[in-house]
Simulated scan of single mutants.
Amino acid sequence: MDSLLQAQLKLMPEMSILLQKRYRILQMIQLSAGSGRRVIGELLGLSERETRKELDFLRNQGFIEISRDGASITSTGNDLLIELKEVVREWSGRLQLEQSLASYLNIKEVIIVPGNVDTNTNTALLQSKEAAKYLESILSDESIIAVTGGTTIASISNYVHQTDKWKQLLFIAARGGVGKDVRLQANTIASLFANKMNGSYRTLYMPDSLSEEAYSTMKNEPFIKEMMDLYERTNIIIHGIGDALEMAHRRNSSVEEMQRLKEIGAVSEAFGYYFNNQGEAVHRIRTIGVQLKQLENMEHLLAVAGGTKKANALLSYFKQAPAQTVLVTDEGAAQEMMQIIEQNN
């Protein structure tokens, strides 16, 4: 932060709070154009009077337009969001929090968006948008990108730009199908990215969890061997991190299996592996897909997960995560993680 800004904050500390509030309002309007005053106020925890006052200010400055359909951001408002992003990131304390977490987790970078996905859907959209932006910054021609499933990863595909900038991008499913919703499975998500970015995709149409007999048979099939070869050559992987018991439930695990996971202290799940609080893999399912040892050789790992409820799972997984990982998360998870870290140290 430059000396002039530091001096201004000392003289008018309330300036930082006001700037962050107006920035959040603009951000929310950008993400959900057409929202009415009441919805904006509820999402940001503002009174109706305060919301009206701030919207009137932003409209008078030419940053937003208000019609019968609700509020929408102008090109001037979009430019302002870009100009203020780094200032707000520093004033809010997120920059310091990002650096502290990245250092503790021993990973390349942490990117934190404001809010908590557990309580605010717009925070989830911001998280997806930041993940999409980071993905586009690391792509190159002929990249092979593996994607896992789930709502969070599916949402990222909404924010990548429709483009043919990169040549021969290949998106591949990092695992088989988990859960009953086909829209949230890795195969579907790989196709969404490919269609948006003028790339191709390869699917893995099989259950995420296999019996020992099925696993032994399938791993020798030519198309499985081809997928395993693609995993060895993957440059980028985009993945979520799950709560162990929640993921077991999504896999329709039996009561006995759920109890077993509790007994062995499973806290987090990723790539079919279950990890305890020390980051040790205490259980794994038989699955055809990206294997844990393959992550070490991938150039970029983009992990996306947020919410206060995920804090313990994130700390568990990152005890063993590769150092080249970038985590996109939210304030809810980041602050809860730091609180747990401080309590344990």
Rank of each mutant, 00 (worst) to 15 (best):
M1P: 02
M1A: 06
L5E: 05
K10R: 15
P13H: 10
M15S: 13
I17N: 14
I25V: 12
Q27G: 01
Q27L: 02
S32V: 07
R38H: 12
V39P: 08
E42G: 06
E48S: 11
R49Y: 04
E50D: 13
T51M: 09
T51Y: 07
E54I: 05
L55W: 06
L58R: 06
F63C: 07
E65K: 15
D69I: 06
D69M: 10
G70N: 05
L81S: 09
L81D: 12
E86I: 10
V87Q: 14
S92H: 01
G93R: 10
G93T: 13
R94L: 12
E98K: 03
Q99Y: 13
L101N: 01
L105I: 00
N106M: 12
N106V: 10
K108F: 02
V110S: 00
I111A: 01
I112S: 05
I112R: 07
I112E: 03
I112H: 04
P114F: 10
P114A: 11
V117C: 05
V117W: 03
D118P: 02
T119Q: 09
T119I: 06
N120H: 14
L126D: 01
A132N: 02
K133W: 04
L135Q: 05
I138G: 06
D141W: 08
D141C: 09
E142H: 14
V147Q: 01
G149L: 05
G149Q: 03
G150N: 07
T151I: 08
I153M: 05
S155F: 12
Y159S: 07
T163F: 11
K165Y: 08
W166S: 00
K167A: 07
L169V: 02
L170P: 02
A174C: 06
G176R: 00
G177Y: 11
V182N: 04
L184P: 07
Q185L: 08
Q185W: 09
N187F: 03
T188K: 14
I189W: 05
S191A: 15
N195V: 08
N198F: 09
G199I: 04
Y205L: 06
S211R: 02
E212M: 11
E213L: 04
T217G: 11
P222H: 09
K225N: 09
M227V: 03
M228F: 09
L230G: 03
Y231P: 02
Y231R: 02
I237T: 10
I238C: 04
H239G: 12
G242Y: 00
H249A: 14
N252T: 12
S253A: 15
S254R: 09
Q259W: 08
I264P: 04
N276G: 00
Q278K: 14
I285P: 01
R286D: 08
V290W: 13
L292P: 10
L292Y: 12
L295F: 14
L295G: 12
N297T: 15
N297G: 14
M298P: 12
L301K: 13
L302E: 00
A303Q: 03
A305M: 15
A311D: 11
N312W: 07
L314F: 04
F318Y: 00
K319L: 01
K319P: 01
T325M: 01
T329P: 01
G332Y: 05
A333H: 00
A334G: 02
Q335M: 15
E336H: 13
E336T: 12
M337A: 00
M337H: 09
M338L: 13
Q339Y: 06
Q343G: 14
N344F: 05
N345S: 09
